[in-house]
Design a protein around this nucleic acid. Structure first.
Length: 694
DNA sequence: CTTATCGTTGTATAGACAGCATGTC
DNA sequence: CTATACAACGATAAG
């Protein structure tokens, strides 16, 4: 038996699913053949990728080869999930598996690992720091490769693939059902596998005025318990032992729907008890609990929940796990759940067909609706899944019908996006992958962009504009990176943001903390910024004027408001107060702060290069990370001391390393003996002193 | 004159990748 | 180019 099948056998997989068989028959194990697999969610895409990985990474005796594999996923959460899963499955064969994402990296050099799980952006960033192991890579699996169509992130993936194609690497693209798989496959030089096989039957239907009308015939009348259609649909499913996902187009919508879904009647006492524990866990994440936490906890007691970007990662994890355990019966979610994470349900309900974007109201792409609906049907748990679109009028009915029956939109290269082009072209020049006009032309010709647009004149115009921008701002000179250009490429920020920062530093009159925060808030990476209300404008302008800021466009005001929020954060204003004051949710605050840390780091590095060095950005970076004032920075640098412990120690007069070493018992009385011991051990080692006894 | 009801106007709108060097309460 | 929910406010009718 083939080694790949043997390994699958080890996991009890004896019978392959139709698309998997098809892939094998068409030569998946031929190590030189690229593949594009376009099949529905949950039909076993990942396993096809895994088969290719095993094929390269294990030899006939199921021992590791000297080859490397890369698994590219679209989300960090997904990367962590896959990392755990693959470690459990494949470490037993001696394979070393690494996770490399923005906020986590293996301690050792990645070259000693066999399989690396990462995001496209991280791999791109690694590439810029020159990886020496790329020639060992012989297989790359790209999960959700249709992400190439994403306005802001697609270009990065496309460039990465364009580069990978030049190596002797087998590329396996895993895609949702898309409109033009043949185009993508041809560009990738890949064998195309399209299939609509699903492990659990999916019944697609449209709900209107109390009745589900199934696309493939048949109706089902839903008992009208009250006039809330979604409630009736959810109850209909829950009372038969199923659970539901409701997809909404706004965060507020998700919260409101979740609030209205009181399922207490359908919960056993045991479930109620467990839900109570979960609700308490939710409330314990942030101290004191915010409004959002309280609302979520209340919903959970009713057996429902909401899920959107305003939740912190811990909140999300709890909700997801409780849903998997079938304690929470329904999640009302924004598209956070439509792609990626494995959270199947029996009935998926799509509430909205349009969504507000920065270009106004737009129909939600058919691909996304199909992804939402495709979540229905848990193998082994549900006899069938149901994907239902809720409609209120004839126009919606037509759209819903199309969304359920038509093929999804074709995907298009998004390399025309200027921000991506700036970042990527600088990257290519900084790594010397492009050394002249000729290289540039040749490279561009190989992109999906050029493949799709055929006529290269428009493409070239776009690209020359970017090259000119990079030259004018001294990131490159005659296709050579300047020191600045090289650093900006490594920092992985948009060159335009770097220009904002440079101009801002040059115009700076006084070194004010808030001014630095304002500078980073103006960068594209921080968008979208906080909304400014009419009533706030005047105050903001006054404050900005006093700092010597001269431009008062609405974007400037928004950036300044964001800077003020960050300023509150680093001055230890309580989190719930910040949330109320700026009308945001915990998850959004975390996200903003995370970006600010990154951009402050970039600012600090750029300042060094242009000779505007200062210790303020460095301090701000630390303070952003901990949400702390300057006085406790020294304490924060010590392991095991965060903002809370640092503040306690500081207030008690312990203000630096020496104070700790000289007053061990006092430290112990403030933060507990065990932690004090750990800290002193740490300091003892660090400063080469005798270990101190308490 | 107070309260309830209905109509008008105004407002707000999804998500999430990247640096770097190691560990919060 | 496209929508819609909801809050805040205001006009009108009912009590």
């Amino acid at each position: 038996m083939n080694k790949v099948l043997e390994v699958l056998n080890d996991f009890g997989i004896v019978e392959l699913r139709p698309p998997q068989k098809k892939a094998l028959e068409r030569g998946l194990l031929d190590k030189n053949k690229n593949f594009l697999i376009s099949i529905p969610t949950a039909s076993g895409k990942t396993l096809i990728g895994e088969m290719a990985l095993i094929n390269h990474l294990l030899d006939e005796n199921k021992k590791p080869t000297n080859k490397k594999g890369i698994f590219i996923v679209p989300l960090k959460a997904l990367a962590s999930e896959k990392y755990e899963e693959f470690k459990n499955k494949y470490e037993r064969y001696g394979l070393r598996i690494a996770l490399s994402i923005g906020d986590y990296d293996e301690d050792e050099d990645l070259s000693s690992y066999n399989l690396i799980i990462t995001t496209a952006e991280k791999l791109d960033s690694l590439w810029r720091h020159k990886i020496d192991w790329i020639n060992d890579v012989s297989v790359v699996v790209v999960d959700e490769i249709h992400l190439i169509n994403d306005e802001t992130r697609g270009g990065t993936l496309e460039i990465l693939l364009t580069k990978l194609k030049e190596f002797n690497i087998q590329i396996i693209g895993l895609s949702a059902t898309i409109g033009n798989p043949d185009e993508l496959a041809e560009w990738l030089n890949a064998e195309l596998i399209v299939d609509d096989w699903r492990p659990v039957e999916l019944k697609k239907g449209i709900y209107r005025e109390g009745v589900i009308e199934y696309i493939n015939g048949g109706n089902k009348e839903i008992e009208a318990i009250n006039d809330n259609d979604i409630y009736n649909l959810v109850v209909d499913c829950v009372k038969e032992g199923g659970c539901c996902l409701v997809f909404c187009n706004t965060k507020k919508g998700a919260v409101n729907e979740a609030k209205k879904l009181n399922l207490k009647k359908f919960l056993t006492n045991k479930e109620k008890r467990k839900l109570k524990e979960i609700a308490e866990e939710i409330l314990s994440i942030l101290e004191p609990p915010t409004e959002m936490c309280k609302t979520l906890a209340e919903c959970i007691l009713n057996g429902s929940a909401f899920h959107h970007a305003g939740l912190t990662y811990q909140h999300r994890k709890i909700v997801e796990d409780a849903f998997r355990e079938r304690l929470i019966k329904v999640i009302c979610a924004t598209p956070t759940l439509s792609a990626g994470l494995n959270l199947p349900c029996r009935r998926a309900i799509v509430k909205d067909l349009t969504r507000y974007t920065n270009k106004g109201i737009r129909p939600i792409p058919i691909m996304e609706i199909q992804q939402c609906i495709g979540r229905a049907g848990r193998p082994g748990l549900d006899p069938y899944g149901e994907g239902i679109i809720l409609v209120k009028n004839d126009r919606d009915y037509l759209r819903a019908y199309q969304a359920l029956t038509q093929r999804p939109e074709p995907i298009y290269s998004k390399l025309s996006n200027q921000a991506v082009l700036r970042t990527q072209l600088l990257g290519l020049i900084a790594t010397r992958e492009i050394r002249d006009e000729h290289d540039l032309e040749w490279f561009i010709k190989n992109t999906f962009y050029a493949y799709q647009y055929g006529n290269l004149r428009e493409v070239a115009k776009n690209i020359n504009e970017v090259i000119r921008f990079l030259e004018e701002n001294e990131f490159i000179v005659d296709f050579m990176p300047t020191e600045l250009g090289k650093r900006v490429s490594e920092l992985y920020i948009d060159p335009l943001s770097a220009k904002y920062i440079i101009d801002g530093l040059n115009e700076m009159e006084n070194e004010e903390e808030i001014y630095y925060l304002y500078l980073i808030s103006k960068t594209l990476e921080m968008m979208p910024n906080l909304r400014v209300y009419k009533s706030e404008e005047l105050d903001l302008i006054n404050e900005m004027e006093s700092l010597g800021i001269k431009s008062f466009e609405i974007e400037d005001l928004e950036a300044f408001k964001t800077a003020k929020m960050l300023y509150d954060w680093i001055n230890e204003v309580p989190e719930d107060e910040i949330l109320k004051k700026y009308k945001i949710e915990p998850g959004i605050l975390r996200y903003k702060v995370e970006n600010a840390i990154w951009m402050m780091h970039a600012l600090k590095e750029i300042a060094k290069i242009i000779g505007k060095s200062s210790d303020i950005p460095e301090k701000l970076e630390i303070r952003l990370e901990y949400g702390a004032k300057e006085d406790i920075i020294e304490l924060l640098s010590i392991k095991y001391i965060g903002r809370v412990r640092a503040r306690k120690l500081y207030n008690a007069g312990i203000r630096n390393v020496d104070d700790i070493i000289n007053n061990p018992s006092k430290v112990a009385s403030i933060i507990g003996e065990k932690i004090a011991k750990k800290i002193l051990d740490e300091l003892g080692v660090k400063f080469g002193q005798q270990k101190l006894n308490l």
